[in-house]
Write a protein that binds this DNA or RNA. Structure first.
Length: 266
DNA sequence: TTTTTTTCCTGACAGC
DNA sequence: TGCTGTCAGGAAAAAA
């Protein structure tokens, strides 16, 4: 599932491949992907818009067009393919016809979302989104976090506090800090916040650098591949790489959470 | 107001 | 083999 590093990599590939292309037509095969505005407005407004560039906030991928911005969230399984010729395949939901080639949005579970805003509009779907995990400062993070009454794991997944961390990287960050995912945020010390934010930035940056291994680029298409799983230390692992203990799997607010019971004490 | 639960979806996998 | 049931998961919406 794409988290911040995967979205960043997709952004970079799209930037290099379809910047300056003009959208000639949009086809939609699953209406629920389009959250704003209406399906017809979405299709009409996009016609003849040039793709000026790309941006990203947390896990939101942002297309900057001539007059609009398109905010795309890939959720669990959303991916983009760039093709020269197009033939519809399973789970293709949105097809952008470009002046040269096609951009195809494919999403098995149909969880992904798109919002289209005129540049003069308020970007409502981004309003609750906090600063990006790579941009936020220690003070900003601490200030927002400290009043929370839930657990450390929930904090890292809360996009209104820090944006871009998903279930997998949350486990990795917490493991690296040798903290327990169920530790209450109210009991975190200043030093813990420092450790957490440092680990966050380090792990996410390394994952972006390794973008080549997590993302497969073909001459005509691109998709997020599950290969970054090879680099994980705890998430979906069996044995702790530090002490050799058996990795434990628990549920923290409905999310599968992996930890080493020996290295990560409350 | 803040936190928890439900909802959206499909494919993978377990058990019969 | 084929059916049914369960699970996974990001974040909005509804409920507590």
């Amino acid at each position: 599932m794409p988290e911040l590093p995967e979205v960043e990599t997709v952004k970079r590939v799209l930037e290099s491949k379809i910047k300056q292309r003009v959208i000639k037509k949009v086809e939609i095969y699953w209406d629920n992907i389009i959250k704003y505005p209406s399906i017809n407005e979405f299709k009409d407004k996009m016609i003849n818009q040039r793709i000026i560039g790309f941006s990203r906030l947390g896990k939101h991928l942002i297309f900057v067009l001539s007059d609009f911005i398109l905010v795309s969230h890939l959720r669990m399984e959303g991916k983009y393919f760039i093709k020269q010729d197009y033939e519809k395949t399973k789970h293709d939901h949105v097809i952008f016809h470009l002046d040269e080639g096609y951009l195809v949005y494919n999403d098995t579970r149909k969880f992904g979302t798109m919002h289209l805003y005129h540049k003069t509009e308020q970007y409502q779907c981004l309003e609750k989104c906090a600063k990006d995990a790579l941009e936020i400062t220690l003070d900003e993070f601490k200030e927002k976090a400290k009043k929370k009454k839930y657990t450390l794991k929930q904090l890292l997944l809360d996009q209104s506090i820090i944006a871009g961390i998903g279930n997998i990287y949350a486990d990795e960050i917490i493991f690296t800090c040798k903290l327990h995912p169920e530790q209450l945020v109210s009991t975190l010390k200043n030093k813990d916040y420092e450790k957490i934010l440092t680990a966050t930035k380090e792990i996410l940056s390394k994952a972006i650098e390794a973008g080549g291994t997590t993302i497969r680029s073909y001459t005509s298409s691109l998709k997020v591949d599950g290969r970054f799983q090879l680099q994980l230390k705890v998430h979906t692992q069996k044995q702790c790489p530090i002490c050799g203990s058996e990795i434990q799997k628990i549920k923290v607010s409905q999310r599968g959470t992996y930890l080493c019971p020996k290295c990560q004490k409350k």
